[in-house]
């Protein structure tokens, strides 16, 4: 199946990726190949096979006890932030 230019642009927008218009045809092709590969999987006979949510059969989620183990490290973590004020991370204005 071949993805259209509009579909590729839509996917890029959802992922907040900025594509150079010249790159779009290349992505049309490479993404179409990935979709085709998934299509191939869909043709496999899966009758009687339970869907898997994870590639590690037999392993299940381990749980942790409800205990506070983390201490305030915001001074350190915020060194990576471009802009902070009064302990808040500052970002360009978001309008609701």
């Amino acid at each position: 199946m071949a993805l259209t230019r509009a579909q590729v642009e839509g996917i890029a927008h959802l992922a907040r990726l900025e594509l150079d218009p010249a790159e779009v045809p290349q992505y049309e092709q490479s993404l179409s190949r990935i979709v085709d590969f998934i299509g191939e999987l869909e043709r496999a006979n899966t009758a009687g096979a339970a869907p898997m949510a994870h590639p590690l059969p037999g392993l299940v989620q381990r749980l942790r006890a409800d205990e506070v183990t983390e201490r305030d490290g915001h001074a350190l973590y915020q060194r990576n932030a471009p802009q902070v004020a009064s302990g808040l991370y500052l970002v360009p204005k978001v309008i609701e």
Partner: peptide, 24 residues
């Protein structure tokens, strides 16, 4: 009403100073 977060050991208490209860 857990003491710690769903996927981390940071506390969930209400009203703390901003970002003092957010871990990595």
């Amino acid at each position: 009403a857990t003491r710690s977060k769903i996927f981390s050991g940071a506390p969930t208490a209400y009203g703390a100073a901003p970002n003092t209860q957010a871990c990595l």
